[in-house]
Computed example of a mutant assay.
Amino acid sequence: MMINMFDKTKSGRIDVVGFSALWRFLQQWKSLFQQYDRDRSGSISSVELQQALSQMGYNLSPQFTQLLVSRYCARSATPAMQLDCFIKVCTQLQVLTEAFREKDTAVQGNIRLSFEDFVTMTASRML
């Protein structure tokens, strides 16, 4: 999925420029994660995740952020997200955001899709 973010030719490969762009994204996400991992535990809570995603420009509800944590984190008494899961979430949000923006030509923050268009849009980017 990360390679697909920078594979402009849809060949399943990226060139040096694409790899450099991917590396920059990874470094930015790692830096952001470390900024919100204030106790240096190697993980962030759903509140810290929401703050990090907000800094990235995502205005997501606490319920959605909690869903992300429960979906991507190991079940425990105090669920928290580790860096690898954070990068996976950021990658998926980036891919879905790009797909959404392609359809939101009026830049209104809303699009109208049929179910098949939605499945095609997400499957072509997520697989």
Rank of each mutant, 00 (worst) to 15 (best):
A99R: 14
A123E: 06
F86T: 02
S76Q: 12
L22I: 07
T91H: 02
F19Q: 12
N110D: 01
T120W: 01
G18E: 04
S43F: 05
S46P: 03
W23T: 09
F33W: 05
N59R: 13
G18Y: 08
V47K: 15
G42D: 11
L49W: 02
I111M: 08
L49E: 02
F64S: 02
S20G: 12
K88S: 14
Q55T: 11
F25Y: 14
N4Y: 11
L83H: 09
R40M: 07
S124N: 14
A21E: 15
M56K: 08
Q63P: 00
G12V: 09
R71C: 01
V95S: 11
R112Q: 14
E98D: 15
L22S: 13
D84C: 05
E102D: 13
Q50C: 02
T97Q: 12
C90N: 03
K30Q: 15
S54E: 11
K30R: 15
M56V: 02
Q34G: 05
T78L: 07
E48Q: 15
Q66C: 08
K103V: 12
S11Y: 06
G12M: 05
C90T: 03
L53D: 00
L83D: 07
R13D: 13
L32G: 01
Q51P: 01
Q27R: 14
T9P: 00
S43V: 06
C73N: 10
S31D: 11
M2H: 05
E102F: 08
S11T: 15
N110E: 10
W23I: 01
D7P: 01
C85Q: 14
S124M: 11
A74I: 04
T120R: 06
G57M: 06
P79R: 00
V69A: 03
L22M: 15
S61M: 03
G57K: 05
E98M: 11
G57W: 09
C90H: 03
L93S: 03
V89Y: 00
T120M: 04
M126P: 05
D15Q: 06
S114C: 08
L127Q: 07
V16S: 13
M2Y: 08
W23E: 10
S61D: 05
M81L: 15
K103I: 12
Q35Y: 04
F19C: 11
S11R: 08
M121T: 08
M121H: 02
R101V: 12
L68N: 04
M121W: 01
A123I: 05
G57H: 05
S61P: 10
M1T: 11
S11L: 08
Q92Y: 10
C85N: 15
A52S: 12
Q108D: 01
Q66L: 11
M126K: 04
P79C: 02
V107N: 10
Q34D: 12
R75G: 00
Y72M: 09
T9F: 05
Y36C: 01
C73F: 03
S124E: 13
P62K: 10
T9A: 09
F115V: 10
F25T: 01
L22K: 04
R71K: 12
V17N: 15
A77S: 12
G12Y: 07
D15Y: 04
S76Y: 03
K88A: 15
L53G: 00
W23C: 03
R38H: 06
A74K: 14
F100N: 02
F64E: 08
S124Q: 13
M5Q: 12
K8M: 08
A52R: 09
P62F: 07
